Simulated assay, not measured.
Amino acid sequence: MTDLSELRQGAFAPGHSADIADALVANSGLRIDIDRRRGRGAGLNTTGRFEPLARETEDDGWSSLEDLPPFKTEVQIEKPRSIISRNDSPDIPFDRSVNPYRGCEHGCIYCFARPTHAYMGLSPGLDFEAKLFAKPDAPRLLERELAKPGYKVRPIALGTNTDPYQPIEKEWRIMRQILEVLQACNHPVMIVTKSAMVMRDIDILADMAEKGLAKVGLSVTTLDRKLARLMEPRASTPGKRLEAIKALSEAGIPTTVMMAPVIPALNDHEIERVLDSGKAAGAEFASYVLLRLPLEVSPLFRDWLLRNYPDRYRHVMSLVRSMRGGRDYDAEFGKRMKGAGPYAWQIGRRFELAAKRLELNLTKRPLNGDLFVPPLGLGVQLSLL
């Protein structure tokens, strides 16, 4: 066991030394054997930052590690007391969101939500992909919260922390039930996903979109199937995501092609191609987000980069740090999504020119909150009048 103060000073502190942090992720002794993590994004399962001690796997000389089972997806039920999360962040276009799941089986190595697993006493690494939490009470809780006196209608965002259409949604169908609640009371909704499973709910979304109540953003990080499989191992392929954009747009649902994240020297050369493909599939809007490496995401991403693209490691991280004030990440509002400096400006300008050429983002589609009718149903107290 290791005192976590050393790890915090190296990998997590905002002004950490690049040499110390790079040495940390380069230590192959921290990595989980490939046979145990096959089909997963992360190569590490380091202890969360709130734990007093860090535990590492060590072979005792008797081949004890050979008997360890592979990481299998486990789902626990979480029973929150409320389901709508609120924020006042000035650089995101919503003030409330709902997350039917905690953790995400897609395993995207760059996922900025990974550090939230530390709040559960679990690792933001492989635990984030394999130890998931489902909230089956979410539809009932949502119905109850929407029915509260004085509730003010604003769009609810789905998929802002972890993807609501990850593989376990096929069995749990919590996202489908949430949409049914929103449809029944005409509540506006915006969805972000990288899963073609969103096409399953086109019947609900098309009905809502006709009333100006729904729009969907599909994240298309790359068109390279090999890179996508390495970077987002259990997410839909790029082709499937473009297929989803086409199906949604043909159903009259306003759709955005999102290049998120843009990773310098890895996928930034694809900005124009991704927008071209999104437009051809029917997207009306486009957006991008620069790679974000908060807290434990930084060593996880750097370990992944060393394993898969060792020849680009120093170049990628040098460019990342040039856009983040010399650090792996700058969480300042207004900078965290787009970065700063010449290279960040170049990425932004290329995106703007491509979007203009393709006539994306020409209009705005504000969602309609005037049709909202408070729900009356399970878990809602009826009026005495």
Rank of each mutant, 00 (worst) to 15 (best):
P254M: 00
P294L: 12
A196F: 00
A113R: 04
D95T: 15
R314L: 14
N267Q: 10
I156H: 00
E243A: 13
G217M: 13
I77T: 13
A281Q: 06
A260H: 06
L266H: 03
E143S: 14
R321H: 06
L218W: 03
R273Y: 11
L367A: 01
W304Y: 09
I92N: 02
L132T: 01
E352T: 09
W172E: 13
R321D: 08
L65M: 12
V98C: 03
E56M: 15
G341L: 10
I204W: 02
Y288H: 05
M231S: 10
I271T: 09
K170Q: 11
P139Y: 05
A113I: 03
K335A: 03
D328H: 08
H315A: 06
S63H: 09
P136S: 07
L53T: 15
R154E: 15
K152M: 13
K152H: 11
P164D: 08
L290G: 00
L376Q: 09
R86T: 11
V153F: 09
L295M: 06
M197V: 03
A11I: 13
L293C: 11
L358C: 10
W172L: 14
S89D: 08
A18K: 12
G107R: 03
Y309G: 05
L142T: 04
K170Y: 13
E56D: 05
L295G: 07
P238L: 15
S28R: 15
A247W: 04
L205H: 01
E332P: 00
G150Q: 05
T222D: 10
A138K: 06
S123F: 00
L378T: 07
V181I: 12
R302P: 04
D137E: 15
T47E: 07
C104N: 04
K226F: 13
D19M: 10
L65W: 02
N186C: 12
V262E: 04
A265W: 05
Y288D: 02
I263H: 00
M231W: 13
I109V: 15
M231H: 14
A260P: 00
E359V: 04
R327V: 11
D127G: 02
G159C: 02
R144I: 01
I271D: 05
P155F: 14
M190F: 08
S277D: 05
T256N: 14
A344F: 12
S236I: 08
L295Y: 08
T193H: 01
L382N: 08
R229M: 15
F301S: 08
G369E: 12
F285V: 13
R86V: 12
D303A: 12
K72D: 11
V220P: 00
L362D: 06
A344P: 08
K226V: 14
L382G: 10
T57L: 13
K215R: 14
D33I: 14
W345E: 15
P167G: 01
F94D: 04
A138S: 14
W62N: 12
E171Q: 10
S383W: 14
Y165K: 01
P155Q: 11
A247P: 05
Y151S: 06
C111N: 01
P366Y: 09
N45S: 06
V373H: 09
I168G: 04
A265I: 08
S82C: 06
R307T: 04
S219N: 07
P310C: 10
L223V: 03
P167I: 03
S219E: 11
L182F: 05
A244T: 10
V192K: 09
I156Q: 04
A354V: 07
V316Q: 11
P294S: 08
P100N: 05
A196E: 05
H269G: 04
K194G: 07
